[in-house]
Nucleic acid binder design. Structure first.
Length: 205
DNA sequence: TGCCAGGCCCTCTTTAGGGCCTT
């Protein structure tokens, strides 16, 4: 696995009560891994009590039950600890706009901030793997034959899979374009490149 | 009561609509 500057990131994933913090949805689990030099060197996983019951769809979708959340620490305490964990590292998530909304909403409640920037593994995968049958996290993991623990829709498991996908994308760029020293900003910028211009963009770096 | 996200991206587009992704 090539060592690259872009490797030093936090890959995170939220499980939540629904799709929109603007509609009152809250985080119920956060999972994250720290990648440095192409390897996972640290991780963070906590359930958090959102202060109300989660519906049966979420229980079934995530496997996180109300019983599991009953004695969990509240969002404020967990998110404060998570904010310490992420520090000012750059961040990666699959469909990052979703996780960013919840991270921003939960940290706003406790008046905390972070200094890193987000990259979206889904938008980048849409550029790099244009032939993939879909760009769901599970679909991309299958498409690239990445190892899994067989657990889906739990925060740490999904963060670990996203991390493997992220590293795979860096490796594929390194192999195909001989670019082994990409910065986070360069990889992040891929998400904004028109699909037809991806190869040209990477070749010119 | 009824409704309920938001950003990206494609196209039979741009005075818009709908699918993909995330829970």
């Amino acid at each position: 696995m090539p060592k690259q500057a872009a490797d030093t990131v936090i890959v995170l994933d939220f499980e939540t009560t629904g799709l929109s913090p603007d509609n009152g949805d809250r985080a119920i689990e956060i999972g994250a891994v720290l990648i440095q030099n192409g390897e996972v060197v640290d991780s963070f996983q906590r359930l958090m009590n959102p202060g109300r019951r989660v519906n049966s769809f979420i229980e079934n979708y995530t496997g996180i039950s109300n019983a599991m959340l009953k004695d969990a620490d509240g969002c404020a305490q967990v998110m404060a600890e998570f904010c310490d964990f992420i520090g000012d590292y750059n961040l990666v998530a699959h469909n990052a706009s979703f996780d960013r909304r919840f991270l921003d909403a939960e940290l706003a409640i406790i008046d905390r901030q972070y200094g890193g920037d987000f990259a979206c593994s889904m938008l980048i995968a849409r550029r790099l793997y244009q032939q993939a049958p879909n760009h769901k996290l599970g679909g991309l993991v299958e498409y690239k034959n990445l190892p899994t623990e067989g657990v889906f829709h739990r925060a740490l498991a999904d963060a670990e899979m996203t991390a493997r996908l992220w590293l795979q994308m860096l490796e594929d760029i390194a192999m195909e374009y001989d670019k082994t020293d990409l910065t986070f900003r360069q990889v992040q910028k891929l998400a904004k490149i028109p699909k037809a211009g991806v190869a040209s963009f990477l070749q010119k770096l």
